[in-house]
Design a binder for these strands. Structure first.
Lengths: 111, 111
DNA sequence: TGCGCTTTTGGCCAAACCTCCAATTATAGA
DNA sequence: TCTATAATTGGAGGTTTGGCCAAAAGCGCA
């Protein structure tokens, strides 16, 4: 039988939908190319061609990554002439990079 | 030709390895069950059986999720008797939930 | 040692993901 | 209108993930 390891009643899980929506956001960040995109955009907006050159893969692939980030609300797009510019829509994600450092430290500690 | 949309020289990309390591952390958070685990652990440690009941799937599946979280340094484990207890190793991840809210708001805004 | 309980590991299969290419859409300029 | 450039969409391929089951490993206790 499972033991009550935490103070009983202290934790009430959120809705399954909430976890799914949250997971989608992290899933969007869970790819090195998309992380590079977010990092780049945290310094200013960029068009698709810029990002394509930065990442070094097919334009369609980058466009795909951008749509994934846009669908979860991390970036926003704006067409100006022939180009489409992307910028961060949720600036808080830049702070998350700091957390990555703490996680890395925790990993180092325990081996 | 790509246009220089950001202040030139303002952004220097990190190493590919850094992006890969960071992506692995987010990938670990990018699953609703694992997000539930993190949320639960933010209120105190839990043994595998507890988490299994909370999630409602096979024990082996939960164990697998936990190993993914452990490998990137988000959680740490400690055996006490027959049971293995898990706790958050990087407490900053709890703050990330707040960021999810901002991302959600950004998504709502733009539709 | 032998039994029971808890957790982990390995194998399997279906579903999801990533990348490219080709084709399409949107816009600017001649 | 026609052409060139920028970006998106659709489809094929190969790879990775997620779930279960069965088997193994670790621990406590008689």
């Amino acid at each position: 039988m499972p033991s009550l390891t935490a103070k009983s009643g202290a934790y009430v899980p959120r809705s399954a939908q909430e976890y799914r929506a949250g997971a989608d956001v992290f899933k969007a960040l869970g790819h090195s190319s998309r992380l590079l995109i977010v990092d780049a955009l945290s310094h200013g907006e960029r068009c698709v061609a810029d990002l394509t050159q930065l990442i070094g893969c097919d334009t369609s692939t980058v466009s795909n990554h951008l749509s994934i980030l846009r669908n979860v609300g991390i970036v926003a797009d704006e067409r100006r002439g022939q180009q489409v510019f992307y910028r961060l829509a949720a600036t808080c994600v830049t702070k998350v990079f700091a957390c990555l450092e703490e996680v890395r430290a925790a990993r180092e500690n325990h081996r």
